[in-house]
């Protein structure tokens, strides 16, 4: 995969900041709780490092993912450690945060809907910024090992490349102990499209 210079990487960091910034604000409103976002990381990773990148390949996470098509092709993934997903659901239900009961169907659809809201606001802010039209699929959810979930976008990417270029943003609660990841994984051509549209 063609590597990028610092200016090009800065553009992608900015994309991640704007996308995840808006997404974090939406979640913050929904939870009525302050969330802060870390500076996004843009990195090229080999497949194995990529699937290890959310707490290890065997770490159980809740992942909500949309496939994006149109002028940009790739995936946007919202992922949380399973313990954080429990705290998130408990917060929404107004019960004790540390409980880790089995998720009910309603809990699962709540997590999925939160993922949907985050992914939509992430993408719509990128659309607004760049003028690129992005078509996200319906989000799909899985609770599974991080390796198994992340291998899906990795495989799609692997048809053309031996590395994954991802923009990774993390947020964490200020008064509520939760952490989440929002990630965009796209091919080099898509990132080129973004740069061209921004005139960089």
């Amino acid at each position: 995969m063609e590597h990028m210079d610092n200016t090009q990487l800065d553009v992608l960091t900015e994309i991640g900041t704007i996308g995840a910034g808006n997404a974090t604000t939406s979640l913050s409103v929904l939870l009525n709780s302050k969330l802060s976002m870390k500076i996004p990381k843009v990195s090229f990773m080999d497949f194995d490092d990529f699937v290890e990148s959310i707490g290890g390949a065997e770490n159980v996470i809740a992942g909500v993912m949309s496939n994006i098509t149109g002028e940009i092709e790739g995936f946007v993934l919202f992922a949380m450690d399973i313990r954080d997903a429990h705290r998130l659901v408990n917060r929404l239900r107004g019960i004790e945060l540390s409980k880790e009961e089995m998720f009910t169907d309603i809990d699962l659809s709540a997590v999925k809907e939160i993922g949907n809201i985050l992914i939509s606001s992430y993408l719509s802010s990128i659309e607004t910024l760049t003028g690129i039209s992005i078509r996200p699929s319906n989000p799909m959810m899985s609770i599974d090992m991080a390796g198994a979930i992340l291998s899906f976008p990795a495989i799609v990417n692997s048809r053309e490349h031996d590395e994954v270029l991802r923009i990774e943003s993390q947020f964490e609660g200020e008064d509520l102990s939760i952490e989440g990841h929002i990630m965009m994984i796209a091919d080099t051509e898509s990132y080129m499209t973004i740069r061209t549209r921004l005139g960089i």
Binding site: F47, E58, G147
Partner: peptide, 23 residues
């Protein structure tokens, strides 16, 4: 064994790979 890789081993070792999804 890493993703997109292979390895061999013999007794008394064991061999593992983690988080196979569609792979």
């Amino acid at each position: 064994v890493r993703m997109a890789d292979y390895a061999i081993c013999s007794v008394p070792q064991k061999i593992t790979t983690i988080g196979l999804g569609s792979c």
